[in-house]
């Protein structure tokens, strides 16, 4: 069928073309009017639905920064943020921390639970938040990205590689409540920020790593001193320095703390 649409099988003549053209124009108008009526029907169906916010809503990554900022800006009672500081979420994380500073200034209590990478990424801002009265702790086991607002709303951002999972906004009271309680449990086992800072940076540096690898390998002090080509006394002094850095008094505690802080060099035990 040509664009001039001849359904009668007659040869197209200028005369027929005019008739066909008018008929098609009317059909376009008719179609447009139908579309308009359908939209009006959809709108009125929407109006009949109760205006209830949905219990579970999925978001696109592009909406995350704005949504997180808006939620924190409107928080009144309590904000909890947990994040591993994943690189792809930097554009969400940085504005989120800024909004958190503003919330603190408004007097809203806030808690932040971080993975080690997030601590390194935002040192200055975290120190400011901490000075502003925000409680900050570090969990070596890379926490999920979760934003809890006033105990009634949760914004959850799953890892990119998690199958079938999408950024989700939840209002369901049981889901938000259970998430709150589980996070409190995680909070209980996390270390305060001031214990984590500085110590980790120094412990990840070369000199400390050599000593830590001897300790991790379970060498006797003598064998370790030989491996590091230092005297036994020097080796023991280095170990004592590390223990002081970690703020503990026994080798057992040193092992535990090194594991928790994630500063052990790679390798099998």
């Amino acid at each position: 069928m040509s664009v001039l649409g001849n359904t009668d099988g007659e040869r197209a003549t200028p005369h027929d073309a005019t008739a066909v053209d008018t008929r098609d124009a009317r059909s376009v108008e008719h179609t447009l009017l139908q579309a308009s009526a359908l939209i009006a029907t959809a709108a009125s169906a929407r109006r009949r639905q109760p205006a209830r916010p949905t219990a579970v809503r999925h978001l696109y990554p592009s909406q995350l920064a704005a949504t997180a900022g808006r939620l924190i800006d409107h928080a009144e009672h309590f904000v909890v943020v947990t994040t591993a500081g994943r690189p792809e979420l930097t554009s969400v994380f940085a504005p989120g921390l800024r909004a958190l500073e503003a919330a603190r200034a408004r007097g809203v209590p806030a808690r932040v639970l971080l993975g080690p990478r997030a601590v390194r990424a935002s040192r200055a801002r975290l120190l400011r938040l901490s000075a502003g009265g925000c409680e900050i702790r570090v969990d070596a086991g890379e926490p999920r990205e979760i934003l809890l607002i006033d105990g009634v709303l949760a914004l959850i951002v799953p890892p990119a590689e998690a199958p079938g999972q999408r950024p989700t906004l939840v209002r369901d009271p049981s889901m938000v409540g259970v998430t709150c309680q589980l996070l409190k449990g995680t909070w209980n086992t996390a270390r305060p920020l001031r214990e984590f800072h500085g110590a980790v940076a120094r412990l990840r540096a070369e000199p400390a790593q050599d000593v830590l690898s001897c300790l991790r390998d379970g060498l006797t002090d003598e064998a370790a001193a030989r491996r590091m080509r230092v005297s036994l006394r020097t080796y023991r002094r280095k170990v004592a320095q590390i223990m002081e850095e970690l703020g503990i008094t026994s080798r057992f505690q040193a092992g535990r703390r090194a594991a928790e802080l994630g500063v052990l060099p790679a390798g099998d035990l």
Binding site: L215, R216, F252, G255
Partner: peptide, 15 residues
């Protein structure tokens, strides 16, 4: 725990 030293014991106990 399978630890050869107290330091290792601490690491393993933590893990």
């Amino acid at each position: 725990l399978g630890a050869r030293s107290r330091f290792q014991a601490g690491v393993l106990a933590a893990e």
